[in-house]
């Protein structure tokens, strides 16, 4: 996980951090991000800030 904050724009990290803190925006939809590097990075960040959370994942 090292280096996430270096590879993702800070504003995106902060947005995901606050979203995960509030637990209101854990729900998200990655369909439009599929196959994109940006989508994968965003997902990694979101997961990183929500480790140990009980989730449901649709694949």
């Amino acid at each position: 996980m090292d280096g996430i904050s270096k590879t993702i724009p800070l504003v995106l990290v902060e947005w995901f951090y606050h979203a995960s803190k509030s637990r209101l925006h854990l729900f998200f939809n990655l369909i439009k991000f599929q196959d994109s590097e940006r989508g994968t990075r965003a997902l990694r960040t979101l997961v990183f800030f929500n480790l140990q959370t009980y989730v449901m994942i649709e694949i």
Binding site: R23, L26, F27, F28, N29, L30, I31, Q34, D35, T40, L43, R44, L46, V47, N50, T53, Y54, V55, M56, I57, E58, I59
Partner: peptide
């Protein structure tokens, strides 16, 4: 183990 590329949707599980 789930490849990120196949994740379409994720939500917090508050039901179970």
């Amino acid at each position: 183990y789930i490849p990120l590329i196949h994740v379409q949707r994720m939500l917090e599980n508050v039901e179970d």
